[in-house]
């Protein structure tokens, strides 16, 4: 065992909305500098798991969390957690691309502007840096001041990723980021995940098994709110131990 705590560690967690249990007996950890796929059919609880890690369910009606969830060693559902700081460390990309009705440039630095307003002078530089990291720079460098809404869906999704990158998170939660995109944008995002996982801990919810196989070292199979199987991607895909997993993978 080494000393640095894992980026995310979940111990016997249970999530319910208005008394209805959505996730139960969740027990897992995620490794640094690698991508973990969360797979499972729709309605199995992938989105809820990711949102729980960023405390994005707090405002939901009747949300209850039991168990322990550590991000970089500190318990986030304990007393005195600074939720805004936590979300600065845990970036989230949603299934549906969503850009603010502002220019491309303003979108790229939107989060940064609130965390480090004193660096206003550097924003154009920083925007370029993060747009490059999101593989979007070449496509938008001539229209930085146009409304972000004119970009294609795939470009908007990469802009959302650049916007999240700018805040400087160490953990990236991506909830089916390519589910509503065309093949070309999907490819661009997959390339992006490959480069993100060099430095970050990436959690990728997807029901595209090929994508999980291509991008991720670890796999977590979620079924009806429980983790049915987890382990290295090659092992889980080639030799699933669980009956349910085998059925899901073979469909």
């Amino acid at each position: 065992m080494n000393d640095t705590p894992p980026p995310i560690e979940i111990r016997d967690a249970c999530v319910s909305f208005r008394g209805k249990t959505v996730l139960d007996e969740i027990d897992c950890e995620f490794r640094p500098r690698s991508a973990t796929a969360v797979i499972g059919s729709s309605g199995s609880g992938k989105t809820t798991l990711l949102r729980t890690i960023a405390r994005m369910n707090d405002g939901m009606d009747g949300f209850r969390f039991r168990g322990k969830l550590f991000v970089q060693g500190s318990e986030i559902y304990g007393n005195g957690t600074d939720v805004c700081r936590l979300r600065g460390k845990v970036g989230m990309v949603f299934q549906k691309p969503c850009v603010f009705p502002k220019s491309v440039l303003e979108n790229a630095v939107f989060g940064l502007k609130h965390h480090q307003p004193e660096r206003k002078k550097e924003f154009p530089e920083l925007a370029e840096r993060f747009l490059r990291e999101a593989f979007l720079w070449d496509e938008v460098k001539d229209r930085l001041h146009q409304p972000a809404a004119v970009l294609s869906q795939g470009q908007q999704q990469r802009l959302a990723i650049a916007r999240a990158l700018a805040v400087g998170p160490e953990i990236f939660l991506m909830d089916e980021p390519t589910a509503s995109l065309d093949p070309k944008s999907t490819q661009a995002i997959e390339e992006l995940v490959r480069s993100l996982k060099q430095k970050h801990c990436v959690v990728l919810a997807t029901h595209n098994l090929g994508q999980a196989r291509r991008l991720c070292e670890e796999v977590l199979f979620v079924c009806e709110g429980r983790i049915r199987e987890s382990g290295p991607a090659s092992r889980v895909f080639d030799n699933p131990l669980d009956e349910e997993t085998r059925a899901y993978l073979s469909q």
């Binding site: 960023a54 979300r87 989230m92 949603f94």
Partner: peptide, 21 residues
């Protein structure tokens, strides 16, 4: 609501979300 969620996920406080989104 998705605009609010995106802004929250970037680490804005609720007050910042209200007044800048």
């Amino acid at each position: 609501a998705e605009y609010r969620e995106n802004a929250l996920s970037l680490g804005l406080t609720q007050t910042e979300v209200v007044f800048s989104v």
